[in-house]
Design a protein around this nucleic acid. Structure first.
Length: 1060
RNA sequence: GGCCCGGUGGCGGAAUUGGUAGACGCACAACACUUAAAAUGUUGCGCCUAACAGGCAUGUGGGUUCGAGUCCCACCCGGGCCACCA
């Protein structure tokens, strides 16, 4: 029997043996094998049940092969897998490849080697390396995203989203990397340059596919309560979704005297009348007035009855709100030059009724106003109908409408149904919300110039500072959209237009991040602050972004840093409206009391703090937190609570070859149609030119075009873009459980058995997007009836990074990359695994230290030698059980059993090292190896097994065979022993694990001066212990001549004496 | 600028979550074995001090407590993510 630890021989032997015996395949083919749950070691940390789905972050098989960073996280998860298996859990531990992606394609561009080949080679390398490490993956369900058997279902998923209206096409400016020749997501642009190649990113307009992840924004927030994830990870998800609560405040932009009236204004002669109506609309009663409509050639009366419909209990809020939100839309239809008008005659209770229907598209929404005749001559406004909404209210019932663009049917609300307003203000608020969500072009656009009245909503998180508004800033985008340029006084017109054009160019070229200059231009327009009627200047400035909030900001320089800088630069008034409590006497900086004294010349951070309202009219003295409610109560028609989100829809189109083709075909008219399901997988063609041309490489494929025309008809063209690889990796954990299934994306029985994932190990680099997208897919598939859970990953932890020996991130360019192959060759996989687990906490970043590896190699060698010695000699030995060693063993089993589930592998290994130290000392003392019996030795090997699977298997087989040989007289070669990795985890004896003698430190005035040693069953005897403590010699020396003031005894821990 | 994570011997890191700081390993030193080296084993190893005894020590400064690496306040340093987000 060899005494020398030959790692290579041992590891290769067992690797082959396990492979041949299919040791770790929990599933065979697509069927999930049922394993009887063992009773032993039942759920030590509880709550996890008997199945255990362990998932390792989907890996991209790069050409360089595995590096030591992969080894750490894979080993950690492997230890869990082996531990849970030995504890009787049904473990599912699959592996697969996120195989689509840019590196293979870039390599193809350089060398013309097809990505299929490079990817295949890379996967083979990875597979070999991983197996060599002894990772106990279930290879039967291995998958790769670039395999048609997988991406068929990625495409199927796309089609499901498309059918549900959650995949849509839109044109927009996208980030374009001129070097990679592709569209980049915002998150792939770092400081204005491409994350991958560092080329300057430019903006380009393209038609793209989007997934409507924003539909799930609220559930993506609330779902986080269900999962056990690190808090910072949850916070990052929340940050990304970026839900902000605040308020929208409406400012009315008043055109100054020299405003240019449009000559072909429709209602020139009626201007005063319209003007009057609008004034009343905002500020007064409207009933009794009428509006002349040229198309109808008649007046429309806003009768008392009309308003009666609108009135409910709380007159102040409901009526004003209604007018505010519905009337601009009605007016717009009436006055729009290009609205269509239909005339219809119908019957209502046998009476002839005439209808006039105004129809116009307003921002993609077909809006209708129906007017019907009541009496001869008089016309009565009847209803408002909006086509294209997704929800509506009829009477008091909420009704779901089919998604926009899907149905040609008219949809809408009968806003004037009296019973709609029957009971509560709540419904009214809901209605207002719906109406405000339909973005309208400004009621004062183009031809109609009201003289008053462009309404600009400003989103703010600080409605409490609304009295401090001294200017309003509108983003260039919004300014253009509202057509406010037309209202700008002539002499400023050129300046404003120039600024806006410049701002757009700036976005096009690229936004310089470093430049924080608060440029802007005074438009000469004035906005009315609704709370105090003050007219403040309106600026256009590009520090306000079109896509954020409402694209317009109320400038409160006293309490917002950016507004402050802007005000200073443009010499605008700064008006503090928040007061803070002064700490201490408020004496300035003499005593560090932090007296908060406001100075409009310097910006200080605390200006942004909450406090008490001052200079705010009737709201003075109110706390910031209470201000919104009070403001809404008073100014409901111009201030309303509002919420904004940072999250945008997910742009999935990539102008790339090596990805999943988007399953869409276009008819000769250019209209998109989904590829029929029977044509899936919609295969990626092979006859493409990889060289970048600025267009999708698939355009060069004759195969693809021919296939499309053959299946769909002449003149039909395929979609040439492929999908973002995040799409592939957002559902792979569902496919694992039945990866070979050809009939369904994932087998429902298998899903029920294994999902959701119990433990997910993932690097911190995937925290935001991968998780967000995966959660979105899970929720979508649940809503489609395919899944019965809300969150895919129940528990998640992150592995840290292994840094190079220089303490820097490993990278090829730094030349500090460590290959696991070299380490495995020199020390073996067991040592590599042990070392990486021993380096420190799994979540921390740790530098690689090759000399430290030898410590673990030494440890394994010692273990090997010890067990071998014992095994060789045990026949001739008198076994005398060593009590200290027994106790240490059971303490170690306990410690390791507790540490593994919480991933504290480093301390578990330290504990085992201690045991071996004690063990060796005991042997030295006894003079021979007979200090442990066989059961104890096997128990130790077992707890080491998850960490070092090869050496433990070897030793276990040796020792166990010996035992069998004693019982049945057979040649050793014929004895078959079950693998250690399928055997049961050892139990510990709680009594033995308990420390018999406990040393209790004695402190005097907080300093340790001695200790008393107590038997563990005496620890509750406070009197005795205090007495003993005082008798300790070293303690006595410190007590001499002093008086004991206080005596404290913390059971089992410490005695603390206070003397004077 | 915002948010997050860290700061403990020469190094990687322990510390039952408020109870004897430095487990375990590396490196280092001395010794043993050896002609010698490697390997292996034994012993030592936070700093100050000749030493006993003691004193000082967990980024800095305060605080709470019988007792603080751990809790609170202020600050310094390093790393990561986001960034003109109203």
């Amino acid at each position: 029997m060899p005494q020398i630890y030959n790692h290579t021989k041992i590891e290769e032997k067992w690797l082959q043996h396990w492979e041949e015996n299919k040791l770790f395949l929990q599933t065979e083919g697509q069927k999930v094998k049922d394993i009887k749950d063992k009773v032993n070691g039942e759920a030590r940390e509880g709550a996890l049940g008997y199945k255990m789905y362990l998932l390792f972050a989907f890996a991209y098989p790069s050409g360089q092969g595995l590096h030591v960073g992969h080894v750490e996280s894979k080993t950690a998860l492997d230890i869990l897998a082996r531990y849970y298996r030995m504890n009787g859990k049904n473990v599912f531990f699959p592996v697969g490849w996120d195989a689509f992606g840019l590196p293979a394609e870039n390599y193809a561009i350089k060398t013309s080697v097809p990505p299929v080949e490079t990817t295949k080679n890379a996967i083979n390398t990875f597979r070999r390396q991983i197996k060599r490490l002894g990772i106990s993956y279930d290879w039967a369900n291995e998958l790769a995203t670039c395999h048609p058997g997988y991406y068929k279902w990625t495409q199927w998923l796309f089609l499901q989203l498309y059918k549900a209206g959650l995949a849509y096409q839109d044109t927009g400016m996208v980030n374009w990397c001129p070097s990679c020749q592709t569209v980049l997501a915002n998150e792939q642009v770092v400081d204005g340059v491409c994350e991958r190649c560092e080329a300057q990113v430019i903006q380009k307009e393209m038609k793209q596919w989007f997934f409507k992840i924003t539909d799930y924004k609220d559930e993506l927030i609330s779902g986080l309560d269900q999962v056990d994830w690190p808090e910072p990870t949850k916070r990052q998800q929340l940050n990304w979704i970026g839900k902000k609560q605040g308020a929208e405040v409406d400012f009315i932009i008043e055109a100054p005297q020299d405003v240019r009236f449009n000559t072909n204004f429709l209602f020139d002669e009626n201007y005063t009348e319209v003007f009057k109506a609008v004034r009343q609309f905002y500020f007064q009663e409207l009933s009794g007035t009428s509006v002349y409509s040229p198309v109808l050639d008649d007046n429309i009366s806003f009768t008392r009855a009309f308003w009666d419909h609108c009135i409910c209990q709380d007159r102040k809020q409901s009526q004003l709100l209604y007018r505010l939100y519905s009337l601009p839309k009605i007016f717009e239809l009436f006055y729009a030059e290009n609205s269509k008008v239909f005339h219809k005659v119908g019957n209502d209770q046998k009476k002839r009724v005439e209808f006039w229907i105004w129809e116009k598209e307003i921002e993609g929404v077909q809006a209708q106003v129906v007017v019907r005749s009541i009496n001869k001559g008089a016309k009565h406004l009847y209803s408002l109908v909006w086509k294209g909404m997704t929800e509506a209210y009829q009477s008091n019932k909420k009704i779901e409408l089919s998604p926009a663009g899907q149905s040609q049917q008219r949809q809408g609300i009968n806003t004037l149904q009296p019973d709609y307003f029957d009971d509560s203000i709540q419904k009214f608020l809901i209605l207002s919300r719906i109406l405000t969500q339909i973005k309208l072009k400004n009621i004062a656009q183009n031809e109609i110039d009201w003289g008053v009245g462009t309404r600009v909503s400003c989103f703010t998180t600080r409605p409490d500072t609304v009295f401090g508004v001294t200017f309003v800033v509108i983003s260039p985008e919004k300014f253009k959209q509202l057509n406010l340029v037309k209202q700008v006084p002539e002499k400023r017109c050129g300046q404003v237009e120039q600024y806006i054009n410049q701002a757009f160019k700036k976005t096009e070229e690229e936004r310089q991040i470093g430049e924080r200059d608060k440029t802007g231009v005074d438009t000469g327009l004035k906005a009315i602050n609704p709370v105090n009627g003050q007219a403040v200047p309106v600026y256009v400035a590009d520090y306000v972004l079109g896509g954020v909030g409402t694209g317009a900001v109320m400038g409160v320089p006293a309490h917002d840093e950016r507004d402050f800088v802007f005000a200073k630069k443009h010499k605008l008034e700064i008006k503090p409206v928040i007061a803070w409590e002064k700490k201490g006497g408020g004496c300035g900086d003499c005593c560090g009391c932090g007296g908060k004294i406001y100075d409009i010349n310097i910006w200080q951070n605390f200006y942004g703090d909450y406090g008490q309202l001052v200079n705010s009219g009737q709201f003075n003295g109110l706390k910031s937190e209470d201000a919104l409610a009070a403001l809404v109560e008073e100014f409901a028609y111009v201030i309303r609570p509002a919420t904004t989100y940072k999250l945008r829809d997910w742009l999935i189109s990539r102008q790339r070859y090596w990805g999943t083709p988007i399953p869409i075909v276009y008819d000769p008219g250019g209209k998109p149609h989904p590829v029929k399901e029977e044509h899936l997988p919609w295969e990626l063609p092979t006859d493409v030119d990889f060289k970048p041309t600025g267009e999708s490489p698939l355009k060069s494929s004759k195969q693809l075009k021919a296939r499309t025309e053959k299946l769909y008809g002449k003149g039909w063209t395929p979609e040439y873009d492929t999908m973002d690889t995040f799409v592939d990796s957002s559902w792979y954990y569902l496919r694992y459980v039945s990866s070979r299934d050809k009939s369904v994306f994932s087998d429902s029985t298998a899903l029920k058995k294994w999902l959701p994932v119990d433990f997910y190990m993932i690097g911190p680099e995937h925290i935001v997007l991968h998780l967000l997208y995966s959660r979105f897919f899970t929720k979508f598939l649940r809503d489609q009836g395919y899944l019965n859970f809300d969150e895919p990953f129940m528990k998640m932890r992150h592995q840290g990074m292994i840094l190079g020996p220089d303490g820097k991130k490993m990278s090829k360019s730094r030349g500090n990359v460590i290959s696991p192959d070299d380490v495995v060759e020199k020390f073996g996989a067991d040592t590599l695994r042990m070392y990486e687990m021993f380096m420190g906490p799994i979540e921390a970043d740790k530098p690689w230290d090759i000399s430290a590896v030898s410590g673990n190699y030494r440890f394994l060698s010692r273990v090997y030698r010890l067990v071998q010695t014992w095994s060789t000699m045990s026949n001739d030995l008198e076994i005398s059980i060593h009590e200290g060693l027994q106790r240490k063993l059971h303490q170690t089993i306990k410690k390791v059993s507790h540490d593994i589930p919480v991933l504290k592998f480093n301390t578990a290994i330290a504990a085992m090292m201690e045991l071996v130290n004690v063990w060796e000392a005991a042997i030295r003392e006894a003079g021979n190896a007979g200090v442990m019996n066989q059961a104890d030795i096997l128990a130790f090997i077992k707890i080491l097994a998850p960490f070092a699977p090869f050496i433990t298997e070897e030793l276990y087989q040796e020792v166990a065979k010996k035992q069998v040989k004693k019982q049945v007289k057979k040649p050793v070669e014929q004895i078959k022993i079950k693998s250690i990795h399928l055997d049961a985890w050892p139990d510990w004896d709680e009594d033995l694990a308990l420390e018999q003698q406990v040393s209790i430190a004695v402190q005097i005035n907080g300093k340790v001066r001695g200790e008393v040693v107590m038997a563990h069953d005496q620890l509750d005897n406070q009197k005795m212990i205090l007495a003993a403590a005082k008798k300790v010699e070293t303690v006595q020396a410190h007590l001499a001549g002093k008086k004991i003031v206080k005596e404290i005894y913390v059971p089992g821990k410490i005695v603390s004496l206070v003397v004077n």
